[in-house]
Design a protein around this nucleic acid. Structure first.
Length: 857
RNA sequence: GCCCGCGUGGUGGAACGGUAGACACAGGGGACUUAAAAUCCCUAGCUAGGAAUAGCGUGCCGGUUCGAAUCCGGCCGCGGGUACCA
């Protein structure tokens, strides 16, 4: 009899799996396939608990599916382009490429001991030339199908560093390095025409039955379909009318001004030769490009002096204002404001002393609007003041429809459908990304590179010297030779595009590439036809909108360009969003770094002292920021390797799955890990004890097997419904039953072997060990998943709680199928009920068979 | 600001609208041991009570229902996303 040694066991079985090529995915038409995919990681160089949790969940599914006869594809790769590599090069020298590949090596080394059922032969990183070369081919095909185009868009501009900043690099409206006030500046950029697919991407959401409802709802809101009225306001000066779009045309009688975006063509036209307006617009352009920054900025307005005529009353003139909260990207970039029924418009009108006109009131409350706009739900009936289409009492919805009809009949407006979804800007003015394969020729203009010239590789050096990343700006842009090329069309000297692609492009098709990772085209249709779609996709809820929407777009684009079959337009059949692993952030309360920025400490650098959290070494006080997403920049990451090296991978896997429901965030605590280790050692001990028992039968053999079948049923249900914590709770309970059972060897061996099988998706190494110890044939991973015997699951009696007025007062045990009348009799005869009734008749008696009895007195 | 979630004992959490707190952690008590570790057994929401038991209890306020942690409305707090973090 030996003690449980995770280190020995785990090495042994991992080797066995490698030797038998257990996890190598090979196309096999005779078996149903199953493709499990966890969102691939960014190679930060440190595996953290969130990764372990994510991959363990995928592994449980993958191993379970193998046990149920599926041919499983379970690949892994790295989302390897992106800013952190350039930041690292900027901060401590070195090259993004070297940094990234070193990190990938480290992470693979950290992942392998977990014993995940991954097909490592399919691994790739998005920064592999092989991968991004195929991405460039894909881009050219999309360009050919007119899914890509160029237009102007705004970026965050740092006027001191003379460089474009990511939103993350703007802190409080200032550039993170220079500290300069950031401004919005226009640049010509490449765009994917995702907005052409707005309706398709919206309506197809209904078919994604195995996606979380919240994700579908978030995408629906993001796409933002709206029906409204589009019409022109005629200008008093006779110039071109101003076209506005509104979703509340019913409030037209409450219009107090017409508002246009600071980026509206009229704003730009007026700006020339008007220094005062130019200054105002410069003010509007201050700050970052995020929706949050724009929405929360103080309201600013400027009266252009232009006057327009109200469409229903030509004598009614409205002023035209430029307002900073109107977005050029949405609708027509121009609106009419109805302050009585829109808080933002109201705030603006109060600030600039513009009129507020009520157009409807609540049915029971005709109080005019003062400081708060009256914005009832569109489905609520309201009383109209003077509705031009003749309405008196009507809901907002009905009024909108009536107004659109009215305007269309009168011929001054038309009902139109618009979407909030904007085209996807993919240009990045950065080095560490996939180069956009186009060439700028003086004669031919913007020309796509020839496919035979792909891949367009990133240069490693500049002019024989290492690239200097400490200089702000894009190294490709200032590279002495890389830009030079000849025009693919006319052969004249030309220059390469120096922008690289958004890293969301890389992650929008990797799932397809995994089906044929070494193909010399983006995909291999035979392989894609077999392996697609992803049967189960698993990842963080933070990707609910962008990554998943972009991937859905790409799958469609890849179908159009012939790289994916029709059936893969929705690439992810089922989606599960796991919660994040969170941890308190420890911020140094006594000092900052030399640049005045906060210092964050790792969890193992701090301790509790006299009720205060302090830095172990220095005793400095710490401000504890509770429960936030683990993030490298905040240093609140817990290293899973410590747990693996002291307790083993099975303990780490068991621990991250237990206790907490997979979809919820978990706060990391170290205390539970030891308990998991103890439990696994206990299971191992029970198994060795059973192996050493003398043969034969014992007491309660059948009871044990009955419990075993219940465990099979409950654990299987848990695994299939992502209730891993529920499965584990059941496994604890069954282990307790097994430990206490006085059954004989035959029954105990069967029960223990089944326990090992049921645990095998979570603790594969320990399970293999026990399986072998108890005479299981071959590997447990190759054994068929146990089936619960229904005849062993029937219960003769049920316990029914008896409530009096909804409060539990007693319980009775009755045969499961006892008729309602019988149950009533027994319940009424119960001492507690009789006492409460005191001879009277109950007002009501509710019997839910097999569930509950409620006596209402 | 806007969109989407979440909120239950000391802690992680369980609970098809039907016995709130399964399972586990930390705690308390005990057994074994010269002692400790390991292991095993018992106990445990809060308040009152020796106990039986009673009252209270799922962020707060209100509603629907025979019955609400669960459904609806309104607040509060926390988290995610907000189109150049991935």
């Amino acid at each position: 009899m030996s003690r449980y040694s995770a280190a020995e066991i785990e090495a042994k079985w991992q080797e066995a799996w490698v030797t038998s090529e257990t996890f190598k995915a090979v196309r096999d038409e005779s078996k149903p396939k199953y493709y499990v995919l966890e969102m691939f990681p960014y190679p930060s160089g440190k595996l953290h608990m969130g990764h372990v949790r994510n991959y363990t969940m995928g592994d449980v599914i993958a191993r379970y599916k193998m046990s149920t006869g599926h041919n499983v594809l379970h690949p892994m790769g790295f989302d390897a382009f992106g800013m952190p590599a350039e930041n690292a090069a900027m901060a401590s020298g070195g090259h993004p490429k070297d940094w990234t590949y070193a990190n990938i090596d480290t992470m693979v080394e950290q992942m392998k001991p977990l014993g995940l059922s991954l097909d490592w032969s399919r691994m790739f990183a998005t920064c592999d030339t092989e991968y991004y070369g195929q991405q460039q081919a894909l881009f050219l095909d999309m360009l050919d199908k007119e899914l890509v185009y160029r237009k102007n868009a705004v970026v965050n501009w740092d006027p001191v560093d003379m460089t474009v900043l990511a939103n993350e690099q703007v802190e409080g409206g200032r550039g993170w390095r220079s500290g300069a006030l950031v401004e919005r500046r226009e640049l010509t950029q490449w765009f994917f025409k995702i907005s052409d697919m707005s309706e398709e991407l919206l309506s197809s959401l209904d078919d994604l039955e195995n996606w979380p409802a919240k994700v579908r709802l978030m995408q629906e809101n993001w796409i933002g379909k709206s029906r409204g009225l589009q019409f022109g306001f005629e200008r008093v000066d006779g110039e071109e009318p101003i076209t506005v779009y509104t979703t509340r045309p019913d409030t037209l009688m409450g219009a107090s001004f017409v508002g246009i975006s600071p980026d509206h063509p009229i704003s730009k036209e007026l700006e020339e030769g008007n220094p005062e307006l130019a200054e105002f617009l410069a003010e509007c352009r201050k700050g970052g490009t995020t929706e949050e920054a724009i929405e929360t900025a103080p309201k600013l307005g400027y009266d252009t002096g232009i006057r327009v005529k109200h469409p229903l009353n030509p004598d009614w003139e409205l002023p035209v204002w430029i307002a900073n909260f109107i977005l050029m990207d949405y609708g027509t970039g121009a609106i009419f404001a109805c302050p009585a029924h829109d808080q933002r418009d109201l705030d603006f009108c109060r600030k600039y002393d513009l009129p507020v006109i009520d157009t409807f009131f609540a049915l029971d409350n005709p109080t005019p609007v003062e400081a708060e706009a009256f914005v009832p739900p569109k489905s609520e009936k309201v009383k109209w003041v003077n509705h031009f289409a003749g309405l008196d009492e009507a809901t907002g919805e009905d009024a909108i429809n009536a107004t659109v009809d009215f305007a269309e009949k009168a011929g001054w407006g038309e009902g139109v459908t618009k979407y909030r979804l904007r085209d996807w800007g993919l240009s990045r003015q950065r080095y560490w990304g996939c180069p956009i394969p186009v060439v700028h020729c003086e004669k031919c203009g913007v020309v796509p590179e020839k496919k035979e010239n792909l891949p367009i590789e990133l240069p490693y050096d500049e002019g024989g010297k290492p690239i200097d990343f400490s200089v702000p700006g894009n190294p490709l842009d200032r590279h002495p030779t890389w830009r030079d090329c000849s025009c693919p069309t006319c052969g004249a000297p030309a220059q390469r595009e120096t922008d690289t692609m958004d890293t969301f492009v890389d992650s929008s098709w990797y799932f397809a590439r995994f089906t044929a990772p070494r193909a010399t085209t983006p995909t291999d249709l035979v392989e894609a036809e077999y392996w697609m779609n992803v049967d189960q996709y698993i990842g963080g809820i933070e990707h609910a909108i962008l990554h998943l929407l972009y991937s859905r777009f790409f799958a469609r684009a890849m179908n159009i360009t012939g790289h994916l079959p029709e059936k893969s337009k929705e690439p992810f059949d089922a989606l599960f969003t796991q919660g994040m692993v969170t941890h308190a952030i420890y911020k140094n309360a006594e000092r900052t770094d030399e640049n005045g920025r906060a210092i964050y400490h790792y969890p193992n650098e701090v301790e509790e002292r006299d009720g205060e959290t302090v830095v172990k070494e220095t005793g400095e006080k710490i401000t504890v920021i509770p429960s936030a997403k683990m993030s490298k920049s905040k240093n609140n990451v817990v290293d899973p390797l410590a747990i693996i090296s002291s307790y083993g991978a099975d303990t780490a896997r068991w621990f991250v799955l237990s206790d907490s429901p997979p979809e919820r965030d978990v706060e990391w605590t170290a205390s539970g890990a030891e308990a998991s280790a103890k439990h696994l050692a206990r299971v191992h001990r029970i198994a060795t004890d059973v192996a050493d028992m003398p043969e034969g039968t014992g007491q309660g053999d059948e009871d044990l097997l009955r419990e075993m079948h219940k465990a099979i049923r409950d654990v299987t249900l848990g695994v299939e419904s992502f209730g891993f914590n529920a499965s584990i709770a059941k496994l604890y309970a069954f282990t307790n039953t097994l430990a206490k059972s006085k059954a004989g060897k035959d029954a105990k061996r069967e029960a223990t072997r089944t326990l090992a099988q049921l645990m095998s998706p979570m603790t594969p190494h320990l399970s293999e060990e026990i399986w072998g110890m108890l005479g299981g044939e071959g590997l447990v991973i190759d054994a068929a998943w146990p089936k619960a015997d229904d005849s062993m699951l029937v219960e003769a009696n049920v316990t029914l709680p008896i409530q009096i007025n909804g409060k539990r007062r007693a319980e009775i045990s009755v045969p499961k199928d006892m008729p309602k009348e019988e149950v009533e009799k027994i319940a009424l005869a119960h001492e507690a009920v009789a006492k409460a009734l005191d001879g009277a008749q109950p007002k009501k008696l509710i019997v839910v068979p097999g569930r509950i009895v409620n006596v209402v007195i």
